[in-house]
Write a protein that binds this DNA or RNA. Structure first.
Lengths: 142, 142
DNA sequence: GGCCGATGCTCTAGTCTCTAGAGGATATAG
DNA sequence: CTATATCCTCTAGAGACTAGAGCATCGGCC
């Protein structure tokens, strides 16, 4: 399969068609050649690159990080320290978010668990929301 | 403290001034009365309501959910089933996100841990991104 | 009374990563 | 030859704010 249209690329990578066009627009995926009828025609390099992008997005990397990672992937002789630090920073971020969500989960569980399914006047869910004083922890989600 | 300007309300709730105006614009916080010089003047009801909103946002509830929760809080005689189900749905969502992030953390840890800090050509970080086949799990973040 | 810095006002535009839809052209299968 | 699928461009919207421009007004101090 040498050249393929956008739909095939979409199927092969799991990236939706409008998203592929969007990536082209923001310069993440290079513009491919066009057929006589002005349709995008992708080759293997595009397929590889889009798989990389998709995978990095799945892992939660920001587009700007991906840009940098792609640039590095193109230079096999360079040091990979920068890639490593991007990944580490991202990992720290993920860990922070997990911790936040866990504390948040605790509060929600308590709220839901205490609900007696009666009327709003006695509802712990509503009451908890109205008064932060009931909370055990700080649970700001940044 | 009967009436206060927007800055005082902001301080009292921890919600930034532009955000308060934004909440007014989207109808989450009712427009307050204005002073002769056209400045917003908030009373205690606004303070309570904004505290509720802030707390619910901290807990990750979407604005539309908060709208519904606020409407319910205003009707103490109604059943709280709906509030309960909103909270439960949100809790399930939080749990799903935690699970995703944990699997994602696993992949990132593996990537970072295997990096030998050499050149890009041997970098596990870049390599892992290029080939999903190295991954142990599915880790899509929806 | 005059001045200054803080606070307030409105309005527009930007963030981030897409997603949806309009309105039209072309390709492919039967 | 027609029906349907795929493609094209362009604009707008999502969610929940945030930033900034440009201007009016307030409170406190001399």
């Amino acid at each position: 399969m040498e050249q393929m249209p956008i739909g095939a690329l979409s199927e092969a990578t799991g990236v939706k068609v409008p998203t592929i066009r969007f990536y082209e627009e923001i310069g993440l995926l290079p513009a491919p050649i066009r057929t006589q009828s002005n349709r995008r025609s992708y080759g293997d390099a595009h397929l590889q690159r889009l798989r990389f992008i998709r995978h990095a997005r799945d892992l939660g990397f920001a587009v700007d990080d991906i840009r940098e990672l792609l640039a590095m992937a193109a230079e096999p002789q360079a040091s990979c320290d920068r890639a490593d630090s991007i990944a580490q920073r991202h990992l720290a971020d993920v860990e922070r978010r997990i911790a936040q969500l866990q504390s948040l989960r605790g509060e929600l569980q308590r709220m839901v668990g205490e609900c007696q399914h009666g009327r709003v006047a006695e509802c712990r869910v509503i009451e908890s929301l109205a008064d932060h004083g009931h909370c055990l922890h700080d649970h700001r989600v940044a």
